[in-house]
Design a protein around this nucleic acid. Structure first.
Length: 188
DNA sequence: GAATTGATGCGCT
DNA sequence: GCGCATCAATTCA
């Protein structure tokens, strides 16, 4: 699958397909092991109420990054997908750190390896993703998105985390057996 | 101009 | 495992 195919998928399909891809920012990153899907029919999604200055990137061309600040402190990285203007995005929740471990530790401080990228906020800090990356294409520097070498392992599904609305929508996807998932997932 | 809200992380029990 | 802190952008009046 090419990145073009990937970005054209609707959010839930794209979120599932993203598992196993390698994401790097300036050479720092790893394999994506946990994602969540959002679209504008979803009460929990930022795009639900329509375009605003903040979520504008979500309604722009696909294949771009949508980065926003949560709780005024943390950053979250999304991938815009579907079709342009459809307001769909996939939240990158966790990766398996395999590239630039030293760089991550330098940014994250001296934490356990499993804590380096096991959450959206930590992940962005470890990779150095900030609001400055909002709206940038994932196909161009400093980003790099690399397809899986082989068929990814079993992908699990479950309810999303940390939201108050639409909790029953099982649009969370994770790589089976990864130690970096924020919560265990049940096999489908 | 003021109130409210978070797609979280960390520390403590 | 649970509860709390945290800060700015968004939203509403």
């Amino acid at each position: 699958m090419t990145d073009n195919d990937l970005f054209a998928l609707d959010a839930p399909d794209c979120a599932r397909a993203l598992i196993g891809w390698t994401l790097r920012v300036e050479g720092v990153g790893g394999i994506i092991v946990e994602t969540e899907a959002y679209d504008r029919t979803d009460p929990a999604s930022h795009s639900f109420r329509g375009p605003t200055p903040r979520n504008g990137a979500m309604f722009g061309p696909v294949g771009r990054a949508y980065v926003y600040r949560i709780y005024g402190v943390h950053w979250c990285l999304n991938v815009v997908c579907g079709t342009e203007g459809s307001g769909q995005a996939v939240l990158i929740r966790a990766i398996d750190p395999s590239h630039g471990l030293d760089q991550m530790r330098a940014r994250r401080g001296d934490v356990a390896d499993r804590a380096l990228c096991s959450g959206p906020g930590k992940l962005c800090q470890a990779l150095g993703v900030t609001g400055a990356h909002d709206g940038l294409s994932l196909r161009e520097a400093p980003f790099a998105l690399i397809p899986p070498d082989e068929k990814p392992s079993q992908i699990l599904t479950g309810p999303r985390i940390g939201i108050t609305k639409g909790v029953e929508t099982s649009w969370r996807f994770g790589l089976a057996g990864s130690p970096h998932l924020s919560r265990p997932l049940k096999a489908t």
